[in-house]
Nucleic acid binder design. Structure first.
Length: 312
DNA sequence: ACTATTTCCTGGATGC
DNA sequence: TGCATCCAGGAAATAG
């Protein structure tokens, strides 16, 4: 489940591998859930673009693109060269003729020389850079053929991930970056909010990038129960929470993120921060500070883990 | 303007 | 072994 540290790790790995590459062709699967922008628009923007930068914004991976030349529209919607025969028939049929025709006129005219490809990995999304010969994984929703001869593929079994494009105006992520926000602005985020602090931490419109694992871990370190109303937390406790969030995220990035379920980085390697979890996934196990069994409750539909003695 | 709840998805774990 | 059921979770949509 990629949250900020995992997405940061993946974005850094991808930046090393694909910066400077030109996208020579784009194949998009027939499932529409993974596509937030119209398929034809995504294909049109990506095709013949150079990747100039890969970075993270919240839980999003942003690929900055430079248009190399005008889109060669017809190619953008065909399967990548040499892949058609190996791919299952169902997938090679995934062309987008109707959307394509609609978008050809309108999108081409609005294309700027700068654009962005935005990827949200959801729960199970993966971006893999591999040779074209590599067998195409089940649930592959996008394949970009790169000028270096490799392919960049988006695979997502659960289809909670999302792909979109932004043009010159740029991608506008909501919320503030937890690693950049100063204490004053951080405190302001929670003023007057009656919602449980756990829910507030997960709200991407306030803070972007914190998910279930790091919310629980941060609250433990700050000694705050997840159900506490955000507005009831003292300034001193918020100061501690602000510090805890930054510490937890930095430590997790340093260890390559948390590998629970099937998370791996851009090189296929697991992270190690799961070994540092003090409450997440430890229901019934003794608190590492006081040995009290860790409790699990559901808040906003999410498992929330805490120590009933250490957290008030 | 907020807040709470429901929905979308599949694979792995569990239970009978 | 097989089959049904439940659960994981981010964020958008819906309801209050």
């Amino acid at each position: 489940m990629p949250e900020l540290p995992e997405v940061e790790t993946i974005a850094r790995g991808l930046a090393k591998r694909v910066t400077g590459d030109v996208i020579e062709s784009v194949w998009l699967g027939q499932k529409r859930e993974p596509l937030k922008s119209p398929a034809a628009e995504i294909a049109m923007v990506l095709d013949q673009s150079r990747i100039t930068e890969v970075r993270r914004m919240g839980k999003h991976i942003v690929f900055d693109l430079d248009r190399v030349q005008h889109a060669r529209v017809a190619r953008a919607l065909l399967p990548a060269n040499g892949q058609g025969t190996k791919r299952k028939q169902k997938k090679s049929k995934a062309t987008l003729s109707t959307a394509h025709r609609e978008a050809t006129g309108s999108v081409r005219s609005t294309l700027a020389s700068k654009a962005q490809w935005i990827v949200h990995l959801g729960m199970t999304g993966r971006l893999q850079v591999c040779d074209p010969q590599t067998e195409i994984a089940k649930h592959t929703h996008a394949i970009l053929k790169l000028s270096s001869g490799r392919e960049l593929r988006f695979v997502d079994p659960r289809r909670f991930g999302r792909l979109s494009v932004a043009s010159a105006a740029g991608f506008d992520a909501t919320g503030v970056e937890p690693l950049e926000v100063d204490l004053e602005r951080f405190v302001e985020l929670f003023r007057g909010r009656k919602t449980p602090i756990k829910s507030a931490l997960l709200n991407q419109k306030l803070l972007r990038g914190v998910g279930n694992i790091y919310a629980d871990e941060s609250l433990f370190r700050a000694g705050i129960r997840p159900r506490r109303r955000a507005s009831s937390i003292t300034h001193e406790q918020l100061r501690k929470l602000h510090q805890s969030i930054q510490e937890v995220l930095k430590e997790a990035i340093a260890l390559g993120g948390s590998s629970v379920s099937d998370y791996v980085n851009a090189d296929g390697e697991e992270g190690f921060f799961q070994l540092q979890h003090r409450v997440y996934g430890r229901e019934g196990e003794p608190c590492l500070a006081c040995k009290t069994p860790i409790k699990r409750v559901v808040i906003a539909g999410r498992s929330s883990h805490y120590c009933p003695k250490c957290q008030k």
